[in-house]
Structures are given as structure tokens and as C-alpha cells.
Design a protein around this nucleic acid. Structure first.
Lengths: 141, 141
DNA sequence: AATAAATACTACAAAAAGGTAGTAATATAT
DNA sequence: ATATATTACTACCTTTTTGTAGTATTTATT
């Protein structure tokens, strides 16, 4: 759950794309806007495409667009997709000592903490972020 | 906020120590109980001592004990001590693009999610975990 | 005093994450 | 057709995190 920079980058990219109104975003453009290392950014963009968040178009005038509606992409989904999600037999936040039928001493606390965070993140979609951004723009006028 | 194994180990160790009633815990004993790599565990234990959570006693029959009351150690404190805490000018969960007076699009969402999690973690002390453990033991009888 | 059981320190090795380089493939504009 | 602007793929390099090894130091037991 935001353990690495890759996830941070991904959210930054998606949040940026969601809040603007371009029809196409090239890697180069995103690089200049967001200051994420060129090559790394590209790899991440193809990754996000493979995961179904974006659609890519090759060739001149190519770039990336969303592959689904902004309402369908919530922040928790992005994080879980990129960081993996082994809910099976461990505490999600990392307690490998902790198995479902023999929960460790921290289990309940973690689960409570985690689920409160998860609630907020899964209830926020890219559409919400876009709306917020537009509202902020209006307020500034 | 639980970005690495080291923090996980630390919480496992402290949680374990808090829940049992030994007067002294040697690195070797903890290693056998918790399956944390011997040498790494040792280094971590000295680290936890340097940070004031534990007190170490060298020599035969030496080991580690808590340096403060269990009530004084909450989970958020442990996590922040081990992972560093640059609240100054960035979103705590990682948005380096986001500065205080020019918050990024995700800022509010993050802060809300984060603070809900933080609330639970900072309200849980090692004393609470100990109590929970004892209660669980009683229930099993 | 010698031994054994412990921690402390320093340096190194391995694995994972983050980042870079080169080249191929694709598609548009001219 | 050719040049140009773009994504895609593969391999490599760097940094950080995790884990190991060797040796020194401390202290209770005998």
C-alpha cells in the first residue's frame, strides 16, 4: 500500500491525465509535465496499458488515453494492481507470521487501520479527482 | 508507513516481547521464536535500543528489555521512528510533487486516508496488544 | 583465571527496486 | 518512399534494502 515509487508515479500520472482534457497524452509530454524519469515513465505507461487502465496508440501522434471510464478507476484498485495483493494467508500489510486461522497479536489493529484507509481510497475515483481539480480552478478565478 | 520488512520485524519483535512475561529476551531466543534472520535481528535489536525502545544488557544472561512503559509505545511511533518522517514539505505517503501551499490533486484524499490509519495505529499501544493477547489466552481455556 | 553466553561493531554479499540505453516496430505527414 | 514522432522490447547499470560473516567486547558461572 504505497510501498514504492512506482505506485506513486502511477497515481500521479493517472491523476494528471484525469484532471486535464487533452485527447491524447504522449510519454514525452507527461515526462515534461510530471518530472518522472523518461524511460521509467514509458515502461510504467506500457504497464498501465497492459493492466487495462490505459490504451496506447503507436506511431506519430500516438500516445495514451484511458481505456475505461474515470468512474471505474478508484485509487485502491490502482494501488492493488501495481503492488500485488496477497490476501490469501497473510495480513495484507505484511505480517507474514500471521495466518488466517491463527491471527497474530497485531492482526485486528492492522486490519482496522488498513480498512479505514482502504475505505477512503476505494471510494475515490479518478472522476472525483477530476471534479475536484475543476472546482479548484473555478475557485481561483 | 510499513514500506519495508525492517518495520514489520520491529513490530513483530516488540509485539512479541510485550505479550509475554519474561524478564529478559535474548536475540537467540527471539530468533527461534520469530524466525527473523539471526544477524539482521541482532542489528535491529541494537537499533531499537538506540532509539530508546529497548535496553540491552551485555554478557552472559544478557538480552533486551523494554526501556519504557508499554503504555508509552504506540504503533505509529515505532513505524515513524524506523521509516523516517518527512512531514515538512511533502505528502506523507509520498507525493513529492505536492508542496504544502500548492497541494496536488490527491492531497486531500491521501491525508484523509492516512490520518484514519494513523489514528488507529497511534491509539494502539503495546500495552493494548499485551492485554489482547492475555484475553485471547483466557478465552481459549 | 578460563569458559561460555551474550551484545556491539564493521564490512561485505545478495536481492529488489529504481533508472538508463539501444534498437525495433508502428504509424502519420510530407 | 522517406523522415519523423511515437510506443515496445530487452538488457543492463545503480541504489537501496535485506541478509551474512568475522571479530571484538562484556559479564556471569565455574
Amino acid at each position: 500500500m504505497i510501498r514504492n515509487k512506482t505506485t506513486e508515479y502511477a497515481l500521479t500520472i493517472l491523476g494528471f491525465m484525469a484532471s486535464r482534457n487533452e485527447d491524447m497524452y504522449s510519454a514525452e509530454y507527461l515526462h515534461k509535465q510530471l518530472n518522472i524519469p523518461r524511460r521509467y515513465l514509458r515502461r510504467l505507461l506500457t504497464d498501465l496499458s497492459k493492466h487495462g487502465f490505459l490504451k496506447s496508440t503507436s506511431g506519430r501522434n500516438g500516445g495514451f488515453v484511458f481505456a475505461k471510464d474515470l468512474e471505474e478507476i478508484n485509487l485502491a484498485l490502482v494501488i492493488n494492481t501495481l503492488e500485488g495483493y496477497e490476501t490469501l494467508c497473510t495480513c495484507i500489510l505484511g505480517f507474514s507470521c500471521c495466518i488466517v486461522d491463527k491471527p497474530c497479536i497485531m492482526h485486528d489493529t492492522w486490519m482496522e487501520a488498513r480498512s479505514k484507509m482502504f475505505e477512503v481510497l476505494s471510494n475515490t475515483t479518478l472522476a472525483d479527482l477530476k471534479e475536484k481539480y475543476q472546482m479548484d480552478l473555478i475557485k481561483k478565478l
